[in-house]
């Protein structure tokens, strides 16, 4: 983790002071788990009302990340009708880091299209659940994954509240987690927006500093009363995410989990984590004490025979 950070620090050419502060906070975050996010991290605001479902973003992602060719071409709209188990819409896979879903909303003129990819949480569940530290939240906002240390326990997939990480089960020799990295290596690191954002012909997505995007989102809601639901999805969900969404349809009607709460996932695990040092420190004395108590009579007897 340290090595990776130093490298990205040097290459990225970040201001030294800011980076040191960031290292400090990241360590603090792992220990205590109350991390509000890097101050100048980047994000993307997705305006779902503008999306027409052209899937240009999917194609751009596929190209940028060097993913295998899709089963159906990117201009084939029949993929929207595909269902996975349980009649659920298609999701991210090892071959597609982003997918667009279609929702037919009663009373709405057009279907609503929803782009799904990693939301790049401020305090990611995948990161906090990983026992080999394979995940890293960069100060730029991306949640990175290091495939060279991954053991393949897939706890991150269990922990992710958005069902994002996929796994290359088909590989016997080198199966790894596959997920969106916000084009960190090729673009974000150099201050450029992710490929999907740049490719979108409808300008559905806005790339910028997360804090600026939040202001912009609330501005849009108040500028056009009634045009949006008064909620920015991702502002507070599981501690806040880098990708945030505006919609004209209530979020629970279009597949968003609105019961995630504002706490990062790690906060649910903390109740256990706090008992760990207590057990480690109290148990030895307590149980050795029990031993001495329960063997008291025998010990007394031994002493008697000695004297």
């Amino acid at each position: 983790m340290k090595k990776l950070h130093r490298r990205s620090f040097l290459k990225g050419g970040l201001a030294g002071g800011a980076a040191i502060a960031a290292v400090g906070t990241s360590k603090h975050a792992e220990a205590a788990g109350s991390f509000g996010g890097y101050p100048d991290s980047m994000g993307v605001l997705v305006d779902l009302t503008k999306c027409v479902g052209c899937r240009t973003c999917e194609a751009a992602c596929n190209k940028e990340q060097g993913l295998p060719a899709p089963d159906k071409s990117f201009d084939d709209p029949s993929v929207f009708e595909e269902k996975r188990e349980g009649g659920l819409p298609r999701r991210t896979t090892e071959k597609a880091y982003t997918v667009v879903q279609k929702y037919d909303v009663p009373g709405r003129e057009h279907p609503l299209f929803r782009k799904v990819q990693c939301n790049h949480c401020n305090e990611p569940a995948c990161l906090t659940s990983c026992f080999v530290n394979a995940y890293k939240k960069t100060p730029e906002g991306a949640v990175m994954y290091d495939h060279t240390v991954c053991v393949g326990c897939r706890t991150c997939m269990v922990a992710c509240p958005f069902y994002i990480p996929a796994y290359s089960y088909s590989s016997a020799i080198n199966p790894v987690v596959k997920k969106c990295i916000m084009c960190y290596d090729t673009r974000l690191k150099f201050g450029k927006p992710p490929a999907c954002v740049e490719a979108c012909p409808q300008e559905v997505m806005t790339f910028g500093k997360r804090k600026d995007l939040l202001k912009m989102a609330h501005q849009r809601i108040s500028d056009k009363p009634g045009a949006y639901v008064d909620h920015v999805y991702g502002e507070t969900e599981v501690g806040g995410t880098a990708w945030m969404y505006l919609s004209d349809v209530p979020f629970d009607k279009i597949g968003y989990d609105t019961h995630l709460g504002d706490q990062p996932i790690i906060s649910y695990v903390k109740e256990f984590l706090t008992i760990v040092p207590m057990v480690l420190t109290i148990w030895p004395a307590l149980f050795t004490g029990f031993h001495l108590l329960s063997n008291r009579k025998e010990a007394l007897k031994n002493e008697d025979t000695k004297s």
Binding site: M1, E30, A31, T128, S129, C130, F131, V132, N133, A134, D146, V149, C150, V151, G152, C153, T155, V269, F272, L273
Partner: peptide, 17 residues
């Protein structure tokens, strides 16, 4: 890579660790 969490790359804040 079973021994990775022990010796190669440590994530001590995780329950699985």
């Amino acid at each position: 890579r079973l021994i990775y969490p022990m010796f190669v790359s440590l994530g001590p804040a995780a329950v699985l660790f």
